[in-house]
């Protein structure tokens, strides 16, 4: 299929991009989701502003013991950046399982988040790492936690003039570990459910879950429960993981041909229990 016609601006500065966005343009980053929906004529934006020339959106910097990733960081880059491998191995695991190599070469971390697919590998993993994003607009800039970015199925809280510019991964803590796991019809397919767990000093510091609700979730109730139990005790961990049902109560459950709401919850609890036991009991 072919797209409807649209205006195209290749921005040479963030301000130029913000100006175009303020006048109603839509951001073109890696194009791996947007162009598909345009070709299917599910989306027909009148005006695209291409941000791929904005080098400041590609920077990867150490920042306060953590990492700042420019919004244009490609998923393929996450698979190979040494700092990501060393500090945030779960993010690298999740990146490697995202789509196929051609898509990973173009898809960006910012674009992935803004598409707000509830089953996004990136979203659940970044949530577990307590990542934040910087959002700029004509009016200035603000920061928000990744889990606060999503408002519904394929929807974010961003408004039309907003540009997501950076992802901030905070200091993972001492003896940090993390792991990502998904259930999918097959590797590199869209996950049915996915879970990411971050651990520091043997304690769980964050849990992100995708594919369970219509938006990616942070499993706060599970995180809280795990602070009170012995993470070496499978039964206790299992009971804590089961609180995921309560975390899901904050949003509408996802259900489709690949997984009923019931299956998704059941499978996510299993993944969560296994990941917590594995990451907290690892001896590096």
């Amino acid at each position: 299929m072919r797209t409807t016609s649209f205006d195209y601006t290749r921005a040479t500065s963030i301000d130029e991009a913000l100006g175009a966005l303020a006048s109603g343009a839509q951001v073109l980053a890696g194009g791996q989701s947007l162009l598909q929906s345009m070709k299917l004529r599910q989306a027909s934006p009148q005006h695209l502003v291409d941000i791929n020339e904005l080098d400041e959106l590609r920077a990867v910097d150490l920042e306060d013991g953590g990492l700042r990733l420019g919004a244009l960081t490609r998923i393929a880059e996450l698979c190979v950046i040494a700092e990501v491998a060393a500090m945030f191995p779960s993010l690298q695991q999740a990146a490697k399982l995202t789509a196929d190599v051609q898509v990973r070469n173009r898809a960006t971390i910012g674009g992935n988040l803004c598409f707000a697919n509830p089953r996004s590998n990136m979203a659940s993993t970044l949530i577990s790492l307590r990542a934040e994003v910087t959002v700029r607009s004509d009016g200035g800039s603000r920061r928000l936690a990744v889990e606060e970015l999503f408002s519904g199925y394929l929807q974010t809280v961003l408004s039309s003039g907003d540009l997501l510019t950076d992802v901030h991964l905070p200091d993972p803590g001492r003896d940090a570990r993390g792991a990502y796991r998904e259930i999918s019809r097959q590797p590199n397919g869209v996950p049915v459910v996915n879970v990411a767990v971050a651990v520091a000093e043997g304690r769980v510091t964050g849990i992100g879950v995708g594919g369970l609700g219509v938006r990616p979730l942070r499993a706060r109730l599970v995180e809280e429960a795990l602070t009170h139990v012995d993470v070496n005790d499978p039964r206790a961990v299992d009971e804590a993981a089961a609180l995921l049902a309560g975390d899901l109560a904050s949003t509408e459950p996802l259900s489709d041909m690949h997984g009923s709401a019931e299956y998704r919850l059941e499978a996510a609890v299993v993944l969560l229990r296994r990941l917590v036991l594995a990451t907290t009991n690892e001896r590096g």
């Binding site: 598909q36 196929d100 019809r185 097959q186 590797p187 590199n188 397919g189 869209v190 041909m257 690949h258």
Partner: peptide
């Protein structure tokens, strides 16, 4: 039809 793209209609890939 619920499976209108190859995202939902999954063909086996080499890893499978």
């Amino acid at each position: 039809l619920l499976t209108k793209t190859l995202n939902d209609y999954q063909l086996p890939n080499i890893m499978s």
